[in-house]
């Protein structure tokens, strides 16, 4: 596994076309590879490099900088418990401790059944709803230890499968730019002043084009 399926290959090329310089697509393509395989396999590094015109080492050089891009398989559900300042003040450390007990693994590890990976995470921008956690980057706010147990039960029983896709899938809705509406990527080379940047308005008062 790990080369893009033909469907994903089409999506990958669509993504690349949106950027003035192909290399800009590296991170979105890494996410696409994770969506397909759950993590970033060697073949994916090679193929992404081919698609955007850089070496696999350069793809890895970028990918290894980012916490969400996983080189090793992780659990079906990645559980990130926030212990940054606001969550720390509101019981985030205790929640993490409870999570370790409940799942039987320390933060950073995956359960033996491959279902859960637990991580101690920094601020998730849910600070007023502390303590917060994410499962595959979906939010759970004001989580008590009892809430956590229910959540784990529901996930294990597949009851949340509709709202929480397996690890690797981020947004389930993609941007699609219809070709008849696209203005086109703006190449950095040889750009001219945009036509609308003049001393007159783009629309007249009745809304028509002057």
């Amino acid at each position: 596994m790990a080369r893009f399926t033909s469907g994903n290959d089409v999506i990958a090329r669509e993504i690349i076309d949106r950027y003035p310089v192909a290399k800009s697509a590296v991170i979105p393509l890494c996410h696409l590879a994770q969506e397909q395989d759950g993590h970033l396999a060697d073949d994916a590094l090679v193929q992404i490099g081919e698609l955007v015109g850089i070496t696999p080492a350069e793809v890895l050089g970028t990918a290894s900088f980012y916490e969400m891009l996983k080189r090793e398989p992780c659990g079906r559900y990645l559980v990130n418990v926030c212990t940054s300042i606001s969550c720390h003040l509101m019981g985030g450390d205790e929640l993490l401790h409870h999570a370790e007990q409940r799942l039987g693994v320390r933060a950073g590890a995956t359960t033996a059944d491959g279902l859960f990976t637990l991580e101690e995470y920094e601020c998730q921008a849910a600070c007023t709803e502390a303590p917060a956690l994410q499962v595959n980057y979906r939010y759970f706010h004001n989580v008590t230890p009892a809430d956590f147990d229910t959540l784990v039960d529901d996930l294990a029983a597949g009851r949340l499968a509709d709202t929480i896709p397996p690890h690797g899938t981020l947004a389930r809705i993609r941007q699609r730019i219809p070709s008849d509406r696209a203005a086109g990527a703006a190449s950095p080379i040889g750009g001219a002043q945009p036509g609308w940047l003049t001393d007159s308005p783009a629309l007249t008062d009745d809304g028509s084009n002057p």
């Binding site: 980012y66 730019i177 509406r181 609308w196 629309l203």
Partner: peptide, 28 residues
């Protein structure tokens, strides 16, 4: 895009621009 607010000839004018959604991968 479908309603003509983004892309080519926005609201029928000469103003044309693409807005591209990009996302990061975890790094403050």
């Amino acid at each position: 895009y479908a309603a003509g607010y983004i892309g080519r000839n926005i609201l029928g004018s000469d103003f044309s621009v693409d807005v591209v959604l990009h996302w990061g991968a975890g790094a403050y």
